[in-house]
Simulated scan of single mutants.
Amino acid sequence: MGFHIVNPDAPPSAKAVADKDKQAKTRNGNTRPLPLPFPDLHQCGRLRTGHLLTVFGVSAPEFYKRQKGGLLPAPDGRDPRPYWEASTIRKFKESGGGAG
């Protein structure tokens, strides 16, 4: 049985630094789809961009492209991130909006 003595003042190894950098770079910066916070759009509540990715079944770049082109409803507010009321999205989908 051997012992490994760790010096707390020693700088981290190059491998440990490289592993930490690799973990930090796994995200590409795009918004991720999120599950809806409630079972359907007939309940009251706020939806974020990630929720709308799930509702419309699109990627983040496609969502922002549609938003910029005026094909999606404007956010109901910001705090500072944009949000939509579930009723807004429900009415939009019922009117035929958001179809792929």
Rank of each mutant, 00 (worst) to 15 (best):
G29Q: 08
D40S: 15
Q43S: 13
P39G: 07
P33A: 02
N30C: 05
N28A: 03
K20G: 05
T49F: 05
A16F: 09
Q23R: 14
K25S: 09
G29Y: 06
R32K: 15
R48Y: 08
D19V: 07
V17S: 04
T49E: 13
A18G: 07
V17T: 10
K15I: 11
A16N: 14
G29R: 09
R27V: 04
S13W: 00
K20I: 06
D21T: 08
G29M: 07
T49C: 12
C44E: 15
P39A: 10
T31D: 10
C44S: 15
R46I: 06
R46Q: 13
L41H: 04
T49A: 11
C44M: 13
L34R: 09
S13D: 08
A16Q: 15
A24H: 01
L47V: 07
D40I: 07
G45C: 03
K25T: 04
D40P: 11
L36Y: 00
A16V: 11
A24T: 04
F38Y: 09
H42I: 00
G45M: 05
G50Y: 02
P33C: 02
T26R: 15
V17P: 02
P37S: 05
G45Y: 04
T49L: 08
K15G: 09
T26F: 08
K22F: 03
V17W: 01
K25N: 09
L36D: 01
R27E: 12
R48E: 09
R32D: 13
P37H: 03
K15H: 12
R27Q: 11
P35K: 10
L34N: 01
L41M: 02
N30A: 07
T49H: 06
Q43G: 10
K25E: 06
S13F: 03
S13R: 11
D19T: 07
L47Y: 05
C44L: 13
Q23I: 07
L36K: 02
G50A: 04
H42Q: 07
T31H: 08
L34A: 06
P39E: 10
D40H: 14
K20D: 10
P37G: 06
T26Q: 15
P33M: 02
R48F: 08
R32Q: 15
A16E: 15
H42P: 00
F38W: 07
A24D: 06
K20R: 13
D40C: 13
Q23D: 10
V17R: 13
L47I: 05
Q43N: 08
D19Y: 03
P33H: 04
R48K: 09
K15T: 12
P39I: 02
D19A: 14
A14I: 12
